[in-house]
Computed example of a mutant assay.
Amino acid sequence: MISTRTPLRVTLGGGGTDLESYYRHGGGFIFAMGLDKYIHIAAHRPAFQSGVVLHGPEAETCERAADLKHELVRAALLAHGFEDRFEAASIGDIAGGTGLGSSSCFLVGFLNALHALKGQTPDRQALAEEACRIEIETLAKGIGKQDQYMAAFGGLTTLDIAPDGTVKVEAVKLAPDLEAAFVRHTHIYYTGLRRDAAVILNDQNSAMLSDPSGSRDAVAESLGAIKTLGYRIRDAWVAGDLEGWGHMLHEHWVSKKKMSSKISWPHIDQLYDHVRANYGVLGGKVIGAGGGGFLMLFDPSDGTKLEAYMASQNMPRLNYRIDRAGAQVLGARTEMMTAA
């Protein structure tokens, strides 16, 4: 039995510049943090039982891996030669569809388990790229590379993405008291809303892949501003400029909303304007591609009044810390099994 633990993530700057339709024109940049909220996977190969059994939100049983409806599991199993005699279960600390990169997180954890069952220990870069190949190439999903890399590496991390898709990963290290201050003042609230990020990313991809037009130029301009802002946000964190980070969050909000009408919801927009006007919030963003899930707000005060107000709106605060470990095999029995 193999058990893995893989962190979810929050993008702090540069979101959207990790899609090929953008980075191939001049590179992308992401600054993100892994959360101490995880997707857990347990997997093994039964000694005699045939078939493939999945437990979890998308439970499924079938005779062969090729017959699975769960496309991430199907593609991963076939890529590793596990055609049958396989069982796995998954549990998430936070539900999918909430903007924290859960699909790619699941895939990275699942691939990590498959490697462990075969007695292999891939490095994090290789694990992230394998997940990218499956999602972006094999399954032709219109997504970027940040979720796979952040699931593999965790931490407070920058991703420099070259026009050819090569990713350079660097850890950003802060003094413990400074890191704690950023976490303390950077609130994350659950909105209760869920939406498929691919719907919003498809708008961006479609615009960037179209012939030169007002839409393409506007999206490219917004993403260019977001990329530049990503570098400034990274520098603010390194310099300990908390208020600067708060104001940059608002800049990001304005730039992001120019790209798609689906980035936010009307009542989230109204709530955001209200907390900026009445609770001292300097800036915020909808986490992920947009449209739901979690709302990040920077509050320079002790946060008591803001937290109470958000609770009155049925939006509880997420207590979190930065995960430093990245994707892990927590252990158990490595069976050195190869596919039958």
Score class of each variant (00 low, 15 high):
7 P>R: 13
9 R>W: 14
10 V>Q: 02
11 T>E: 14
13 G>S: 11
18 D>G: 15
18 D>L: 11
20 E>R: 14
23 Y>N: 14
24 R>Q: 14
26 G>S: 12
29 F>W: 13
31 F>K: 11
36 D>Y: 01
42 A>C: 02
44 H>F: 06
50 S>C: 02
50 S>T: 10
52 V>P: 11
52 V>I: 00
54 L>M: 03
58 E>A: 11
62 C>L: 14
72 L>E: 11
72 L>S: 09
81 G>L: 04
88 A>I: 07
91 I>F: 03
92 G>L: 01
92 G>V: 02
101 G>Y: 02
101 G>V: 00
102 S>N: 01
104 S>H: 00
104 S>M: 06
104 S>R: 05
104 S>T: 03
105 C>D: 03
108 V>R: 04
110 F>M: 05
116 A>Q: 03
120 Q>K: 14
127 L>A: 11
130 E>S: 15
135 E>K: 05
138 T>H: 04
139 L>E: 03
144 G>F: 05
146 Q>H: 14
147 D>N: 01
149 Y>V: 10
152 A>S: 09
153 F>M: 06
156 L>A: 01
159 L>S: 02
162 A>F: 02
162 A>D: 01
162 A>G: 01
165 G>V: 11
165 G>M: 09
168 K>R: 07
169 V>A: 05
171 A>I: 09
176 P>N: 10
176 P>H: 03
180 A>T: 13
184 R>D: 13
186 T>A: 12
186 T>W: 12
192 G>F: 12
193 L>R: 09
194 R>K: 13
198 A>T: 14
207 A>G: 12
210 S>C: 06
211 D>N: 15
212 P>G: 05
219 V>W: 00
223 L>W: 04
226 I>V: 13
231 Y>N: 12
232 R>K: 14
232 R>F: 04
235 D>F: 08
238 V>C: 08
239 A>L: 11
246 G>N: 09
249 L>F: 13
257 K>V: 01
259 M>T: 13
259 M>V: 11
263 I>D: 07
269 D>S: 11
277 A>D: 12
278 N>R: 13
280 G>V: 00
284 G>A: 06
287 I>V: 15
290 G>M: 07
292 G>R: 08
296 M>W: 07
297 L>N: 05
300 P>R: 10
301 S>L: 05
313 Q>K: 15
315 M>D: 07
322 I>E: 07
325 A>S: 15
328 Q>T: 14
333 R>L: 09
339 A>D: 09
